[in-house]
Simulated assay, not measured.
Amino acid sequence: MAMFDGLKGFGVTFSTMFKKVVTEEYPEAGAPAAPRYHGRHQLNRHPDGLEKCVGCELCAWACPADAIFVEGGDNTDEERYSPGERYGMDYQINYLRCIGCGLCIEACPTRSLTMLNDYELADDNRQDLIWTKEQLLAPLLPGMEQPPHEMRLGESEQDYYVNGKQLARKWGYPDPVGEEHK
């Protein structure tokens, strides 16, 4: 019986020797990621171009790797970057530290921060792996306007969210426009 064990091993070798080799043409044709893969981050915008980030810093607090830095700034009537009172003035993600856990996504109250399927984050320069707000912001789509600009979707911050006025009534917030609730 021991005499046939060597032949079994050669049998595996011979059976695979003539099969076609599967080669990935990686840089030329990238492999698609799984649909729910968590890759690089993106800061989203409202349909008029204003940023969804309100500079609350909850994503930075939730990050177990301390990879996110956020500094909030105050919106003014002359310079409005988001519909709220504040916006993310300085936003950075250090991909040398990020572990891709997605806790920052869960912590974001405005769904400003999401993760894309983009997995190509490698670089030969450490400084280039610290992404700034300009690199993280979603691109402007047709019909969007580069902030700062006035709110275009309504007169108050609540107009920017689905059922915002109804939810405000339910939770007992005063109407910011001064209209009486029905």
Results as ranks from 00 to 15, higher is better:
A2D: 15
A2V: 12
A2E: 12
M3Q: 02
D5L: 10
D5H: 04
G11A: 15
G11V: 05
V12E: 14
M17V: 15
F18T: 08
F18D: 03
K19G: 03
K20I: 01
V21N: 02
E24K: 01
E25T: 13
Y26E: 12
A29M: 11
G30H: 15
A34E: 06
R36A: 14
R36C: 11
G39P: 09
N44Q: 15
H46C: 09
D48W: 02
D48K: 00
C56Q: 09
L58V: 02
A60S: 15
W61T: 05
C63W: 01
C63D: 00
A65V: 00
D66K: 12
D66E: 11
V70E: 02
E71F: 10
G73A: 11
T76F: 10
T76R: 04
S82I: 04
P83E: 00
P83Y: 02
G84P: 00
R86S: 08
D90Q: 09
D90I: 15
Y91P: 06
Y91N: 01
Q92P: 05
R97P: 01
C98F: 04
I99Y: 14
L103M: 12
L103Y: 05
C104S: 05
I105Y: 01
E106L: 14
E106K: 10
A107Q: 00
C108T: 01
L113D: 03
M115T: 11
M115W: 11
R126V: 06
R126L: 09
R126T: 04
I130C: 01
W131G: 05
E134K: 07
E134Q: 10
L136H: 09
L137Q: 02
A138P: 05
L141D: 04
P142D: 02
P142L: 02
P147F: 08
P147M: 11
E150K: 09
E150R: 05
R152Y: 09
G154T: 06
Y160V: 09
G164A: 10
Q166C: 10
R169M: 10
K170R: 00
W171M: 11
P174I: 08
V177A: 15
E180R: 15
H181Q: 13
H181M: 13
